[in-house]
Design a protein around this nucleic acid. Structure first.
Lengths: 220, 220
DNA sequence: TCTTTGTATTACCGGTCGGTAACTTATCGA
DNA sequence: TCGATAAGTTACCGACCGGTAATACAAAGA
């Protein structure tokens, strides 16, 4: 009896050793790839036509599947949009954590955040944050999404405030100044074209200096 | 023969003198008032819930009438939205004409436009310009609306350019600078609340200085 | 007073969309 | 080889929405 069990276990171990979780993981990976493909197609159509005017049939058609197949990966159309928002916010947060990782003055951090957020606004998932009206979401999901937006906004305010404290930024109305900065950057999501004249980096560099021009203590 | 005609004319004239176009004009005025009421309710709901999620039944309900009655004043839902856009653009253009009326440096004019456009962004019809996605419009109507937006944008660029020419503004990338300025102001349409801390004028004054801070030649 | 005109109503239509049920097919593990 | 599971498909449903007759009704004009 134990012989049989051992043999099975050995066989399983050899298999696992050769390629751990092979079938299971491979399947999960495939699934994630497909899920990601749905999101990329969906966000692209949402930006192109608007959320309400994009039917799940269209999304499915572009993926060469049928609408009900989408429900293998998402519970509802709303969940698809929420995931798009989440991916955009994730991108933004990744940059923020990178900035927080090394010590710097508030001004340097603020400029870095401006540069990074400009780049986010050139991505589909980033543009989704400002171009798809979150009114289409249920109250619950909307609160969730807005919480994420507030979090990003908070870091703008934090960096500006700490810049005023460490003397790298002149005193100013934090709320209004951050609104002006984020507004200018959000607008990038509306006019940026990948085939346009400027790269994301050039826009970011220019904005980083221009939007902090009247705030910086030492003119560089 | 001429007696009859004269008598009719006299009667008509007396009537007209007492109250010209009385019945006709009064009716037209009533009609315009009602038409305006539809637009005000509609734009308010569009901002609150989004265009696609606002049904004409809801609009009608808030006006204590029924949906088909709306079709006495508008040919379609789209026409209602186009009118909302138009009213917003009209507000903006009125300010621009006021600015053009008196000669000034490019910097002064740019600042005046910033102040004015900030105020437009605190009005429903102004917010409509930036918060209702024009993807819901047919291609034709969309082009029409975008032409209006471009026109307003053009004056920002004109004022900035003439400021660089008359020496009141430092050399800069016109396109990018105007995008930054208009983006910051457009964002006001998203966060402004009539019951908030700041008045439209305060926001405008602050932005007028802050957004031109790094552009002005003479620091004021 | 009769007619016309404008404004509103009720009832209804066609079409679309999100979502579901039932069924088929392919793949993997035992 | 056989059964379970995942991933598709076709067919369909209920709800809603923009828009349109057909009609009622009040007020102004002749």
């Amino acid at each position: 009896m134990s012989g049989d069990a051992d043999k099975r276990a050995d066989a399983a171990e050899m298999k696992l050793a050769a390629s751990p979780w092979k079938p299971f993981e491979a399947r999960r990976r495939e699934r994630d790839v497909k899920r990601g493909a749905v999101l990329r197609v969906a966000v692209s159509l949402f930006l192109e036509q608007g959320y309400d005017r994009t039917s799940l049939n269209e999304v499915a058609e572009r993926l060469n599947i049928t609408k009900p197949a989408l429900y293998n990966y998402f519970r509802s159309k709303e969940e698809i949009l929420v995931e798009c928002y989440r991916l955009g916010q994730e991108k933004a947060m990744a940059g923020i954590e990178r900035i927080l990782a090394k010590p710097d003055t508030g001004l340097v951090r603020l400029r870095a955040l401006i540069r990074h957020y400009c780049e986010v606004m050139t991505l589909d998932f980033g543009q989704c944050l400002v171009r798809v009206d979150d009114h289409v979401l249920s109250a619950l999901a909307r609160d969730q999404v807005r919480e994420g937006k507030r979090l990003i906004d908070r870091y703008f305010r934090d960096f500006l405030t700490s810049g005023m404290e460490d003397g790298s930024i002149k005193p100013c109305d934090v709320r209004l100044t951050v609104f002006a900065i984020t507004g200018a950057i959000n607008w990038v999501g509306h006019w940026y074209r990948a085939d346009g004249e400027m790269t994301a980096r050039e826009i970011g560099d220019t904005y980083a200096m221009q939007l902090t021009g009247s705030l910086a203590v030492e003119e560089t």
